[in-house]
Design a protein around this nucleic acid. Structure first.
Lengths: 349, 349
DNA sequence: CTGAAAGCGCTTACAG
DNA sequence: CTGAAAGCGCTTACAG
């Protein structure tokens, strides 16, 4: 297999080179490559052979100039800005995995993925000439989503925007189901008073977790006990909330610490009070992470599969760009990772 | 300040629109914008006014086609591929911060940053038409670096490639100095037998840490005690090594667990043996992380400032692209974050 | 089924 | 100091 343009001439082969080698016009080369128009099978073969021999790949710049499609996508990483990262709470790991998988999926579909700082303005985005973008965990009426809308650029979000009920171009983890599964597991391990440390942000998955929790409590006749954690106080906020819960007369015997950064705070509060895990208190989280896996004890978590989310988002966006009217929204499965922090029955390992 | 092209016509303003509005030729507009050629100051002003009024930004595709410079950079994220991520050992946090900061710095210099999966081939890279790239933590004779070399594309690495001594286009943390500082700190806290859990990979910072450690031991008359950890066994490898060290007759009283993922393993081995930290054993790491900060006790670490590394790498690459022959290699400062795991003197807090 | 030609929006010799 | 014109490498009506 030859893949370099080893003909001694400088630079890459152009469509003209291919046309000359195949003895056809550039029109025919273009048609062959794009699959548009009619091309005689034999001609097509000659063209393909020439393409292979020259290692030809169309110039993205030239075709972008002509078609106004750059085949470049924008990935808005909240974590690129410390401020917005904190406001969004979720771990950098999650976004990184989403970004990485989105980039790979885009790449596989001949698109490039650009990392865009969330400080980008509409003119910035316009100049970059991206065809569309992905925004993760939009806040209510997220201005980042608005950025794309103002430019009439398609945008796909990972998790929906609570303030844009009409926007169905999103991929979402099945938060309701996975939360229910987690609660069922805790009840199965004997939990009778499950409390929820929720994220105090207008974020879809956070709202869905609360909703699922309250619904589950209703069905199982358990009094819901939700404590929102101020996103600006992070671990300390979670710690304070957990501590006050554990100091009550009838403290919870299980705490679902929704955000990734909460369980450690719960562990600390419990540790200081000599409360043993999982015997006296079970701890679980809705976002799996390295920290959850490595904690002592390891913490049961819902794995939202950020990689799958990112890849799915990229594919959905590319589908949208090709006007193929793909099914949407898309729901990605999440899995429960049961670990020591909620395993009472098989306690000692 | 007007920034939209609100003139009712579809699409973005082109250089022709600007030229027409300013009553000049497109040549003059181009010269004004690029600073090349002579343009009368008054004319220049008229052009600028027209540019502002129209919110004009040059089409990247058009200028790329013409100049063969796409102003697009490639960021090779080892973490994009699980396999290569593991082979490189360092945390995803570090690469994410490097990538994010590099993207921001590139953006500030009018360049876009592309996320490239390390599975990309030379033809892939050629087709993307990037002007150059950044590779983080190259392994010995890293093939990712070779990818760029084979395309005659400039590449900057974060940390040097041990197998490319002539390649000085890199940014590096001052690993020797920060390791020395860490060892001085441990000695100051009373450590007499400091062991090193090193990374068994041909990676520059790993080698520099070992080098600094051995040099320091020589100067201070301490017997060096280095244990390489097999990168394919990760935490378990570190755990096994730490456990066997702690079971010796004269175990170390301080362990420097170079990689981010090692300290937890050390903590576990120590905990199982009832060894108290920091009283009987101090633990420190050469790569700061969320995990180190949140561990109990919090772990002293060297903060290599991955954000600064990424930004510096991007700036170095852009400098190289503009043929300004920037100073190189560049060393970024690392800081010691002293935490409870090595604080004997001011023990109780 | 095939090709000549226009044109996407820039930049850059070149001529004045 | 300024402008007309060529051309980067594609894609796409359009004509045959």
């Amino acid at each position: 297999v030859e893949e370099g343009s080893e003909d001694g001439r400088p630079g890459r082969a152009t469509i003209k080179d291919v046309a000359a080698l195949a003895g056809v016009s550039t029109t025919t080369v273009s048609h062959t490559l794009s699959g548009k128009g009619r091309v005689d099978p034999a001609t097509r073969e000659r063209v393909r052979a020439a393409v292979d021999q020259l290692g030809y790949r169309a110039s993205r710049a030239a075709s972008a100039l002509r078609t106004r499609r750059t085949r470049t996508l924008a990935f808005l990483v909240p974590a690129l800005e410390r401020a917005s990262f904190e406001a969004r709470l979720v771990s950098i790991d999650v976004y990184m995995n989403q970004a990485a998988a989105a980039a790979k999926a885009a790449f596989a579909a001949e698109h490039a993925m650009l990392m865009i700082p969330p400080t980008a303005t509409a003119p910035d985005l316009a100049e970059l000439g991206v065809d569309g973008g992905i925004v993760c965990d939009p806040l209510n009426q997220d201005p980042l989503v608005g950025l794309f809308e103002s430019l009439d650029l398609p945008v796909v979000t990972v998790e929906r925007d609570l303030g844009r009920p009409e926007h169905d171009w999103y991929v979402s983890a099945d938060n309701h189901r996975s939360t229910t599964e987690l609660l069922d597991h805790l009840a199965g391990q004997g939990a009778e008073r499950i409390a929820l440390l929720s994220v105090d942000l207008p974020i879809a998955w956070g709202a869905e977790v609360i909703e699922a929790y309250e619904a589950w409590c209703g069905i199982h006749g358990m009094a819901p006990r939700t404590a929102p954690v101020d996103p600006h106080h992070q671990e300390n906020g979670a710690y304070a909330v957990a501590a006050s819960m554990l100091d009550e007369q009838l403290p919870p015997d299980a705490i679902v610490a929704s955000d990734e950064r909460f369980p450690h705070a719960v562990l600390r509060a419990a540790g200081e009070r000599g409360i043993r895990i999982p015997r006296e208190l079970m701890v679980a989280t809705c976002i799996d992470s390295h920290a959850a896996r490595e904690a002592t004890p390891a913490i049961t978590a819902v794995d939202i599969d950020p990689g799958l989310q990112g890849a799915t988002a990229a594919e959905l966006l590319i589908g949208r760009l090709s006007h193929s009217d793909p099914e949407r929204p898309l729901v990605t499965p999440a899995s429960l990772r049961v670990r020591a922090s909620t395993l009472r029955t098989e306690a000692a390992r």
